[in-house]
Design a protein around this nucleic acid. Structure first.
Lengths: 152, 152
DNA sequence: TTCATATGTTTTATACATAAAATATTTTTG
DNA sequence: CAAAAATATTTTATGTATAAAACATATGAA
């Protein structure tokens, strides 16, 4: 009972902190690059897979719905930052990858993004950041394990 | 440089954890109460102000745009959970408050919500939760202070 | 008073976000 | 092989989200 209140308070703080940081990052992306966080996330995922990703794989990596991926890819493509390529041997599927221009644009944005995050989390020492990141990873793993159990 | 990578990693983990928890809470709200997180958040804010809040105050408390508040209040009202009341002496403004039914419904949802959060963060001891919550509050305060400075 | 300005809310346009239905293609199976 | 099932994507309907414009009302100063 008391315990659950402590965890609830922790959750509300986590939410407040991450929403605050997200909102500043969103504003910065918009201001500096006329872009958005979902687009940045997608370009980050694509930049980690230069050969491209299928729409469904992209949906899995980003953990967003298929329909959502369709729209974001549409908009990135309209701006020449990404492109759909047919998949040889499967006419249902589409491979998405960054264009050369998209790669260059993402490199610029990623550098700025790292700087913004460094500023926003500057209150943490590098050591503290590592410790906390490790602790959060443990939590994430426990959650994923629980997920699997529930799925049975 | 190295430091910024550590803070970036911490940020990505924070984001992953909170998005994961948010998504489970959203699923549970939908499944158990056919509702959403924004609606729950708004009802929580209103339940803390039984006398009601003006639309603009609600927008400030929830940190979402005016237009967004309009839509969520519309939907809660359509279901009889909230209602708009005129503000005596200012015909521009509207006071929003939970109906009696809304209060009862929120009480049910809040209890379930606390249990879900307790489960999802069960990996933290109550002690650890308190310590981390305190640390995060410090960070939030530093951020708010920086915000004010930038606003000058 | 009256007009400029400020305040409070809604509307509009656009971008995510989901779930579920629709479409197209492949694979499996009887 | 043909029908059924599975897979990959898009479309549709709905609900957030923002910024900016529109609207209504209040308040201030000349």
């Amino acid at each position: 009972m008391t315990n659950s209140k402590d965890r609830l308070r922790l959750w509300l703080r986590l939410l407040k902190i991450t929403r605050g940081i997200e909102s500043r990052l969103r504003d910065a992306l918009r201001r500096e690059f006329d872009s958005t966080l979902p687009r940045f996330d997608m370009m980050a995922a694509l930049s980690r897979h230069p050969e491209g990703l299928k729409m469904s794989a992209l949906s899995g990596v980003l953990r967003v719905s298929n329909g959502n991926v369709t729209g974001i890819v549409d908009r990135l493509s309209a701006e020449g930052l990404a492109e759909r390529m047919p998949v040889p041997g499967d006419r249902r599927a589409m491979m998405v990858r960054l264009t050369t221009e998209g790669q260059a644009e993402f490199a610029r944005q990623a550098e700025a993004h790292e700087g913004w995050v460094n500023d926003l989390l500057g209150d943490f020492t590098a050591d503290e950041a590592r410790t906390l990141a490790t602790r959060l990873m443990q939590l994430a793993e426990k959650q994923d394990k629980k997920e699997m159990t529930n799925a049975l």
